[in-house]
Design a protein around this nucleic acid. Structure first.
Length: 773
DNA sequence: ATATCAACCCTTTTT
DNA sequence: GGGTTGATAT
């Protein structure tokens, strides 16, 4: 039984215990939001809610996973695993796969990622013979995304005056047509993009009241995390699902809404109480993370925003040091000063490297800090940049998997029809696309009978196409005969990818090999993990549907050692560090130059700064440079207006600072030249190794050579007489104690309480561990 | 069909 | 500055 009195403060407890109707929890930064959510779910379970009747939606897989683990620790693995807890996208894709037939899809639909969508848009623009200078894929994509997030279908788009006006103003009057074609092509390919996962869920529920009813009845309680980041579509689906019972609890902080550029609408949280009558509002205002100085400074900053829910965040921790303001001559010097300050602070106050974070507005700023840290041999890790699944070699392999599972997948088709090179060029692909579009079939269907669709190709090409088709057909027939690991290994070998990648032994291609190996190891772990849990869904299709919604942050373990963290402020949301350096506080950088003209955008930048400040527990530093290299040009910069938004009582301002800013620009420039040149050439000569380092840092290092990849044998030894009370050491979960052993024969399973990983159910047939005496 | 070079374009990015 | 893309040459 959980002690809700001792472990929660008064407002947290009130929020946890109130479950009679809709509630809104305004959770200030560091106020124990996740704690409230997990305790609330635990409390619901204790009060008799079945786990599968609780729907909890988050924005990241990581958040969902963490919460699930914390709940499992409180109420046991058995209840926790049946909770409907996950990201909007993963939960809805699960529903959509079940109900696919009702909206004209099949259960194995592909999920297009951003680059798939862009590529499809590019080819549509080309086919429509529009000028791709005016019709830029990125811009069109964001228009389409925006439409979908507002639940506007191609049909509705065509009739929408506002949209048409906007498009005409941008000289892109054909976007409506492009949207229509894009929509049809996705359907033809059996594919949904990220936005479709939301839009089709909404459509499913609006067009099929019986299905909506089914889910309304199943989900007796709905919780939503980070509600300030929901968009119109997400908001409306929550509305649909909760309409019947009004048992809904949304948690968030309007002051931390920083994703409007992705369609998030802060009004959803601001107007929540208007939509749901009788909403109980709870405010969590005690900050347990930061010193009083940091909390007060952050309050004084956010006060400058107009639109917000009034709240008074306070801290009862010590007052702490003032926030240090650092002024540098150049961006390079900024890197030097910050690194030196980290060294000093670490020595004088015995911090570890992972007690430090450097947060910046744009990824481009990371390079200079990398350089400075590397020069001093300080360990660091960078988040962001190219994710594992976006690397070319990984996308190629995944495309084979995708096409096998869903042969209609157009983007996968185009990606691999000539990889490895088999003499099928752009002209041929163009003809296939044309035939497919004019007959309203998929590219794959054209391949089945090229002559039928009037494909004008010569004998040689015909043969090449047929052998590709036969290759794919062997893969398709393998799908049912093995698990994801077995099938994928076979595909990688038989498609000639192994040959292609392992041919050249040039050092820069070694990382490609390692990445493929890493992917294969990942698939192996995916199967092993599910088998151990007794989950039988380990086909390639199961792997794909999970992996397409996965991002890098989900896979990497943040526990990899003592390192300084470098990341954008956006990706730092939800995290905390003892010491935080917020860098590049200059006009046109932070706030970004793009937000100058709109007060709304400026408020969002200010919230972003608020998020950055409130990441710090002990110390916070703000730095800016007078000169910075911008797109290759040296530019002068003025200190950010945000420095003036913070009450000076909380700042430690250096002698010649904000007030006297036009002091010695020529000197600054001179300095830059002098230090810059050698540093840069040094960097250039080491560029390759830098890349290597980044890869090594982002990719876990348990690589095995390709030849050695094969299922690791399960222990198989002495597991039949495993007894409760014994200590075991598991390959992934570490050391734990056996609580129970149940079942017999094949289905023998043990419940083990691990020191670090919580309680797990292991199917002994598959589990890899050894008994420690 | 590949290689090489010039032209382009730059925010943030949970899915 | 730098990474990617597209046109051109071979």
């Amino acid at each position: 039984m959980i002690n809700y009195i001792d472990e929660l403060n008064e407002s947290q407890r009130a929020a946890v215990l109130y479950n009679d109707g809709p509630s809104l929890v305004i959770a200030g930064a560091g106020s124990g939001k996740t704690r409230v959510l997990t305790y609330k779910i635990a409390y619901l379970l204790e009060s008799g809610y079945e786990p599968w009747s609780i729907l909890a939606l988050t924005f990241t897989n990581k958040a969902a996973k963490e919460m699930k683990e914390r709940i499992a620790r409180q109420v046991g693995e058995q209840s926790a695993r049946y909770l409907w807890m996950g990201t909007f996208h993963s939960v809805f894709s699960r529903i959509l796969r079940t109900e696919a037939a009702s909206i004209g899809f099949t259960a194995n639909f592909t999920i297009y990622d951003t680059s798939d969508s862009k590529s499809l848009i590019r080819s549509i623009v080309k086919e429509m013979q529009l000028d791709d200078k005016t019709y830029k894929a990125g811009a069109i994509q964001s228009r389409i995304s925006n439409a979908k997030n507002h639940l506007i279908s191609p049909g509705a788009y065509a009739m929408n005056r506002e949209m048409a006006e906007h498009d005409n103003a941008c000289k892109m009057g054909a976007i409506g047509d492009i949207y229509r074609r894009y929509w049809d092509r996705c359907r033809q390919a059996g594919a949904m993009d990220f936005d479709d996962l939301l839009f089709y869920t909404f459509i499913l529920f609006s067009e099929h009241p019986d299905i909506l009813r089914k889910y309304q009845e199943q989900f007796k309680y709905i919780l939503v995390d980070e509600y300030q980041d929901t968009n119109f579509a997400q908001h409306n689906i929550v509305l649909q699902l909760s309409k019947l019972r009004q048992k809904v609890c949304v948690v968030g902080d309007d002051a931390q809404s920083i994703y409007s550029f992705r369609g998030a609408n802060i009004d959803n949280i601001l107007k929540f109480t208007k939509l749901y009558q009788n909403t109980q509002v709870f405010k969590l205002e005690q900050n347990y993370r930061s010193t009083q100085t940091i909390v007060c400074a952050a309050n004084s900053l956010i006060e400058k925003n107009r639109e917000q829910i009034p709240k008074e965040v306070f801290s009862e921790k010590s007052q702490g040091d003032l926030i240090g303001v650092i002024q540098a001559y150049s961006d390079v010097e900024e890197g030097d000063i910050v690194s030196n300050r980290i060294m000093e602070l670490r020595m004088s106050q015995h911090y570890g490297y992972n007690d430090f974070a450097i947060l910046y507005r744009t990824n481009a700023q990371s390079r200079i800090f990398e350089e400075a840290l590397r020069k001093r041999n300080l360990p660091y890790k960078i988040y962001g940049g190219l994710s594992f699944y976006q690397r070319k070699e990984i996308k190629d392999v995944i495309a084979y998997f995708r096409l096998s599972v869903n042969p209609n997948d157009e983007e996968a088709f185009k990606r691999i029809i000539n990889y490895p090179a088999r003499g099928i060029g752009d002209t041929t692909v163009g003809k296939i696309i044309e035939a497919a579009t004019s007959h309203s079939v998929s590219l794959w269907e054209v391949l089945g009978d090229p002559l039928e669709f009037g494909l004008n190709i010569n004998k040689g090409t015909h043969t090449k196409l047929q052998s590709f088709r036969e290759l794919m057909e062997t893969f398709i027939s393998m799908l049912t005969e093995g698990n994801a690991y077995e099938v994928s290994t076979a595909i990688v070998k038989q498609a000639g990818i192994v040959n292609d990648i392992y041919q050249d032994r040039q050092p820069e291609n070694m990382s490609r090999q390692e990445n493929i190996e890493e992917l294969m190891n990942g698939i192996h772990d995916f199967c092993a993990m599910r088998e151990e849990e007794g989950n039988e869904n380990i086909s390639l299709s199961d792997f794909l549907s999970e992996v397409s919604l996965l991002s890098d942050q989900d896979t990497d373990k943040s526990t990899d050692g003592e390192k300084i963290t470098l990341m954008t402020i956006h990706s730092a949301k939800g995290l905390e560090f003892r010491n935080v350096f917020i860098v590049g506080l200059e006009e046109n950088l932070f706030p970004s130059s793009m937000s100058g003209d709109s007060p709304r955008a400026m408020e969002e930048e200010r919230r972003l700064f608020y998020v950055a400040l409130t990441r710090a527990e002990d110390h916070c530093f703000l730095s800016y440079a007078k000169i910075r290299l911008h797109y290759g040009k040296t530019e002068f910069a003025n200190p950010s207006r945000f420095l003036r938004d913070i009450d000076t009582a909380y700042l430690q301002i250096p002698n010649d600072s904000v007030s006297s800013r036009q002091s010695d620009e020529p000197a600054g420039r001179f300095r830059r030249e002098k230090r810059e040149r050698p540093a840069r050439s040094l960097f250039n000569s080491e560029r390759e190794t830098t890349k290597q380092n980044i890869i090594n840092r982002t990719v876990p290092s348990n690589l095995t050579k390709m030849e050695n990849i094969q299922p690791k044998p399960s222990s198989g030894i002495a597991i039949t007489n495993l007894q409760a009370g014994e200590q075991i050491e598991h390959e992934r979960f570490g050391i734990g104690e056996v609580l129970r052993v149940e079942g017999s024969g094949e289905n023998l399973k043990a419940t083990v309480k691990f020191r670090n990983a919580g309680e797990k159910q292991l199917l002994l047939k598959f589990a890899r561990f050894k008994v420690i005496s």
